[in-house]
């Protein structure tokens, strides 16, 4: 550790000031717009107006619901996938991790676009369902919450898997065999041993996935459209169609609060489990 404060500040300040000037300040001004009254004072009337509108309520709840659902489902699938990958031999593990990361390198525009073909009434999902006799009439999946859910899950699942892979790898190698020897079943092993030991990875992955869902614009725009609005698409509509910057500022604030709240909540959940475990 070097002690020279002046030197430390000289090194760190350019980055911090840059981020503050081009990023924090404009965003904070934008957010403050939502609390300005036309008389020049401060008010929360824009927020009460926003939430008294039933369309906005629906969109808000839908965003919350889809974000939570994608996070939970990606955690469940993520654990299974991460377990499978970690148990491979080193060479195969590297290649599999590479394949999981691969979609992150592809433009979200292209990835979302593919779902229009896959989920359509004559798309391969419906063809498979009809061939298997699951449904007779083709299902309508496009332009629904289901379509957005699938699109978001595919977009953000890799983030969850790689967070959980590194968490599982950092776990003591003998933790699982030890628990098995002591007579725990697989469910108990997961709940009492794996989950507590990998909670940090879960918190990181969960935050990335949930925040991702709140910031994704393309997926809800293409797979939901104006029929299934989310907060991101509503914000864009407010700005570019209705020219309503106050409402846009309100939505922006809600989105930011939601990301922070999710992060704090996930950390809370993780530490709460920890305390329970350490009780005698």
């Amino acid at each position: 550790m070097f002690q020279n404060r002046a030197e430390a500040l000289a090194l760190a300040l350019p980055a911090a000031l840059f981020a503050a000037a081009v990023f924090l300040v404009p965003v904070v001004i934008l957010l403050s717009d939502g609390f300005r009254s036309s008389a020049g004072g401060w008010t929360i009337s824009a927020y009460t107006d926003f939430f008294s509108n039933s369309l906005n309520q629906t969109v808000f709840l839908r965003t919350l619901k889809l974000g939570a659902l994608v996070t939970v489902v990606s955690a469940v699938i993520g654990y299974a996938a991460a377990f499978a990958i970690v148990s491979l031999e080193p060479g195969a593990k590297g290649r599999m991790t590479g394949l999981v990361v691969l979609p992150l390198m592809i433009s979200p525009v292209a990835r979302t676009y593919a779902w229009i073909v896959i989920l359509g009434r004559t798309g391969i999902v419906n063809q498979a369902f009809q061939a298997l006799g699951i449904t007779e009439v083709p299902l309508r999946i496009l332009f629904s919450e289901t379509a957005i859910f699938i699109g978001l899950l595919q977009l953000f699942l890799p983030l969850m898997i790689i967070s959980l892979i590194s968490a599982l790898e950092n776990m003591p190698k003998d933790a699982i065999p030890a628990a098995r020897v002591l007579g725990a079943n697989w469910f108990q092993v997961f709940w009492k041993v794996v989950l507590p030991l990998t909670k940090e990875g879960l918190v990181i992955g969960g935050t990335l996935v949930f925040t991702g869902c709140l910031t994704a614009y393309i997926t809800p725009a293409i797979l939901g459209g104006s029929k299934v609005l989310m907060l991101e698409t509503l914000l864009y509509q407010q700005v570019s169609v209705s020219n309503n910057f106050v409402s846009a500022s309100v939505i922006a604030f809600i989105l930011i609060v939601m990301s922070f709240a999710a992060n704090i909540l996930l950390k809370r959940v993780a530490t709460a489990r920890n305390k329970m475990r350490s009780r005698p």
Partner: peptide, 14 residues
């Protein structure tokens, strides 16, 4: 953490 769409809008406006 801040949604990109907000960053873009804030930069444009301010």
């Amino acid at each position: 953490i801040v949604p990109g769409i907000i960053v873009g809008l804030a930069l444009l406006r301010y």
